[in-house]
Every structure is written in C-alpha cells, then in structure tokens.
Amino acid sequence: MKYYFLLFIFIISFTACSNSDNRKVVDNSENTSKKQKEDTSYEIADLPIHIDSTAYLIHPIGNYVIRRGRTKYFDSEDYEVNSSSSVSMNHSKNKITGDLSNVKFQHLDSNKLKSLTDKTLRINSMLFLRDVYKKNNKGYFVYNVIDADTNSDGKLNYNDLRSLYISNLNGTKFRKLSPNRQELNAWKIIIEANKLYFKSIEDSDKNGEFNKKDKLHYFYLDLDNENSKVIEYYPI
C-alpha cells in the first residue's frame, strides 16, 4: 500500500512540473545561436488590409520555416526536416492578431511598400489607436511583440517575454517602450489625458522566473508628441 502511495505522489509531482509556465529569463546565448542556425526561413505575405478612414494598406508578413534537427540512424548523423507557416492571423476594424514576423505599409496613392522593421521578432498583435487619431489627428499603432529568446530554447515564441512597441500610422518610428528583460503585464489608453499607460514585471530576485516577489514597474507615454519619451512613475 505504501508503494502505491509513493508512486501516486511521484506521478502528481511529475505532471505539475510538465505543466509549468516556460516563460523564463535564461542567459544562454551560445546555445540559442547554434539552434537558430539550423533553421531556414522564407518570408511569405498575406493579402493587404485597409485601415478604415486612413490612406494606408497593411501587408502582414510571416515566415515559412524549415527546421532541421539532428537524428541518429545506423550510427550516422542525419537531419530531420520539418516545415511550418506562421502567417495565421485575424483582423477586425482596428486590430490585427496572429504570428507575424514583419508588417509592410503602403499608401493608397503609391505602389511602394515600406517595412516596419529589419529586426528578427514576432508580432502577436497590432492595434490602431483610432480614438487618439480622432482626437488629435495623430496616427499610432501599438504592438505586442516578442523580440528576444529570453528562455534560450532557440526559438522566438509564446514562451518568451512580451514587449510593448509603438509606431506611427505609416510604420515609421517603430520603437520599443517596455524595458528589456521585463514581461509586459498590461497596458491601456486614457484618452482624456491622451496618454498610454503600461506596467511590466522584472525578475528582481534573479531566479529566472516571475512570481509575487518580483517588482512591478509603471510607465506612461504622452501621445501628443510622437517623439515623447517613456516616463516611469511610482504609484506605490
């Protein structure tokens, strides 16, 4: 009876570990770069989206990835090849969500396409701040982005830290708002103040995980000026 009880405890413990959150901060850049070199990716685009009441089209860009993993077969090394496409998205009047590697912008009166960025990153969502546009005629997109392999597994995916970015309506001045190596916790627009507020969490105890002992940081950005700097404030 004691044997079965111990076996039950072991199974429960193993299951709990298997279901843990992989969103961690791990410093292992050498291992990360080695894994990324074994992948080959090609850009593919979806059909353009018109942002209502503006003069711009949005072209979502994703990756077709060929992943190569080492495998043993009759004592010789070979490569096992898998492929996947990341242009899977949904869009509404103001928001585009999915798994994008870039976005290209096109004015309705031009055939020229402008890339949002030349960096390797994953865009989970982009939101047009329509209320801000109506108030002061300044157009912005806010982005939920994964820009670093923070858990050092060789991939940029939902297990890595999320960051907040912003750009102008035409894709210019794309920049990061939240600090490096901090997880974006929440953000919102206060239209009456014309400010973007957000908070992030820092792994302040340096244990590689986020928990209640870690520190929350609070910030705001003035949307009246497209060159304004992020300001940290201290409500507690």
Rank of each mutant, 00 (worst) to 15 (best):
N159W: 02
I58P: 01
I201D: 11
D147F: 00
F141S: 03
F105W: 13
I11D: 00
R162P: 02
N194E: 08
K114D: 08
D224E: 06
L7M: 13
M1C: 08
L169R: 07
Y158K: 05
L116D: 01
S41M: 11
T120R: 14
K112Y: 15
H217A: 08
N82Y: 07
S92L: 01
V145Q: 11
I66Q: 14
I11Y: 08
G208H: 11
S18G: 05
I189L: 14
N137H: 12
I191L: 15
A148S: 13
V25M: 07
K155Q: 02
V26Q: 09
W187V: 06
S53N: 12
L108M: 12
K155C: 02
G62I: 05
N227P: 09
S83N: 05
D149G: 02
D214L: 07
I236L: 10
I123C: 00
A193K: 13
R67A: 12
H50F: 09
S167W: 08
E30A: 15
S178I: 07
R23L: 04
Y158L: 00
E43L: 05
S85C: 14
N185G: 01
I11Q: 04
N31D: 10
Q36P: 03
P235C: 09
A193I: 00
N82C: 02
L216W: 03
S163I: 01
N207R: 03
D203G: 07
N82F: 06
Y158V: 04
N185R: 14
Y56E: 06
H91K: 02
H59N: 08
S85P: 09
D99Q: 15
K206H: 14
S18L: 12
Y64L: 14
D27E: 14
V142H: 07
E209L: 10
V87L: 04
F128E: 01
Q36M: 13
V230T: 15
G171Q: 13
V230S: 15
R162E: 08
E192N: 15
S115V: 02
N82A: 01
L164F: 09
L177P: 06
G62T: 07
K199E: 13
D160T: 10
N225C: 09
C17L: 00
K229W: 03
I12P: 02
H91P: 00
Y79C: 01
V142S: 03
S152K: 09
N28C: 08
S18P: 01
S20D: 12
L121M: 14
